[in-house]
Design a protein around this nucleic acid. Structure first.
Length: 424
RNA sequence: GUGGGCGUAGCUCAGUGGUAGAGCACCGCGUUGUGGCCGCGGCGGUCGUGGGUUCAAUCCCCAUCGUCCACCCCA
């Protein structure tokens, strides 16, 4: 026996039992996104390392220590994508898709960050994201949020989520505030914990995010970003709030919401839940008005979000709903000499009824064994094909989930019969 | 990267310093072509891995790997 190879740490399989929830989430999201006019955009999992270092921010943990970076065979530094936005911007620019304003795209797939796994966090994880380019106003911010709110509604998890919003202002406003905050915090160095002291120089705004209870008083007293915004930024924010109110989307202004990635400007938001432990952010995003320019394009504004599929799946799994689709029919072969005929019959039924979920017994077995499998398959009915049936051009139909009597149906009529009697 | 909990059959877990069990699952049987309930039987574990202590370790010690939770970070 050779040694068993296991999956890499933090790189889980999606097992058949969980697959139905995943597929439900993905097709529901795809439907909602497309109903707002978003087109799918697929980008590679592997990109030039520079793409990410340039856009995400050199001081972030993602760049500093979480990227899967290595030299490919051509000795070029490549990285597995830690997030989706950078690739989308790259692709849009590369293919000249930003000429017309209002481009809407979405993506889905695995992302990679070398982190220590815990609840709601793994090294390979999946995101569904949406991005819009060329629209600077709060109207699209509002629509994007409405779209996410609608998705929660459709999925049945809106009761678990709340929306937190903030504005980071323009790049210069943000820069100015950052300096101001740094100076203020520096006066209170004695009250900062170790993590905050470290962040003071690298990313002081993240101190506002601290979970340390001892820090909360200080954070509450710190100067607020919102008070340092210019009129234009405030107006953008106010208008967005007004539209959200019109749509009855409730929100909270979280002054401490700063987001981790460097490219955000103006509107930032998070959908958070209390039902998933420490990793409560299920969907997050914001505006990134300078990012396209940063990648060599024109000064085209953008906004987008990404949702964590593992976290959404975890919420969906708390619902009483069963997402699995059970088979309709299990075909039992009472006489192994009829194996060929049974398989042909199954194919004929699939021709007639493309929607039919039909399992044909494989691998032989006694009637008892086959009925056991039929029962376990959760099929509605069992079909029995044996010598008696074959001799009379009939098939035996037995209901497995109710007490209806077993009946014989002619093989010619079987397709029609199933169509009329299943359909539940 | 830091801290803590846990690693015994496919799953959920008992257990003892003298090399192991239960429930569920799986397979078969309870007569000839009928599942779900019940009964009987069976398959299945180098007790995560490597060292050490000991006459002897699954149980004690160390290391390592994995896993879970939290910090950090973030979706």
């Amino acid at each position: 026996m050779s040694e068993k190879i296991q999956s890499l740490r933090g790189m889980p399989d999606i097992l058949p039992l969980d697959a139905p929830v995943w597929q439900y989430l993905e097709r529901t999201a795809a439907a909602v996104l497309s109903s707002y006019g978003y087109a799918y955009l697929g980008t590679p999992l592997l990109e030039s390392t520079a793409l990410f270092t340039r856009s995400i921010g050199a001081a972030t943990d993602i760049i500093e220590k979480e990227m899967y970076t290595f030299a490919d065979r051509n000795n070029e530094s490549v990285s597995l994508r830690p997030e989706g936005t950078a690739s989308v911007v790259r692709a849009m620019l590369q293919h000249g898709l930003l000429q017309t304003p209002g481009q809407k795209v979405w993506y889905q797939g695995p992302m990679f960050r070398y982190e220590k796994p815990q609840r709601g966090r793994s090294r390979q994880f999946h995101q569904i994201g949406a991005e819009v380019f060329g629209l600077a106003g709060p109207d699209i911010d509002a629509e994007l949020l409405a779209m996410s709110a609608r998705l929660w509604e459709v999925l049945g998890i809106s009761g678990n989520l709340r929306l937190e919003i903030n504005s980071l202002g323009s790049a210069t406003e943000r820069q100015r505030y950052r300096q101001h905050l740094h100076d203020w915090l520096a006066l209170h160095k004695a009250e900062l914990d170790d993590d905050s002291l470290r962040r003071l120089e690298t990313n002081p705004m993240r101190i506002l995010d601290s979970k340390n209870p001892d820090m909360q008083a200080l954070i509450g007293a710190a100067p607020k970003l919102f008070d340092h915004l210019g009129d234009t930024s405030r107006e953008h924010f106010d208008q967005l709030m007004a539209i959200l109110d019109c749509m009855n989307i409730s929100w909270q202004h979280n002054h401490r919401l700063v987001r981790g990635l460097d490219y955000y400007t103006h509107t930032v938001f998070e959908w958070v839940t209390d039902d998933l432990g420490a990793q409560g952010t299920v969907c997050a995003g914001g505006r990134y008005d300078g990012l396209v320019e940063l990648h060599g394009g024109a000064a085209i504004p953008g906004i987008g979000f990404a949702m964590g599929q593992e976290r959404l799946v975890a919420l969906l799994q708390q619902l009483p709903q069963d997402f699995a689709r059970q088979p309709d029919v299990y075909l039992i072969i009472a006489d192994q000499s009829l194996q060929q005929q049974a398989i042909v019959l199954a194919e004929q039924l699939r021709d007639q009824l493309p929607e039919l979920r039909l399992l044909t017994n494989m691998g032989g077995g006694s009637m008892r064994a086959q009925f056991k499998r039929a029962d376990r398959s959760k099929a509605q009915i069992a079909l029995v094909l044996g010598a008696d049936e074959w001799a009379t051009d009939q098939i035996t139909v037995k209901w497995l989930r109710n007490q209806q009597d077993q009946v014989a149906v002619s093989l010619q009529e079987l397709g029609k019969w199933l169509q009329q009697n299943l359909n539940s």
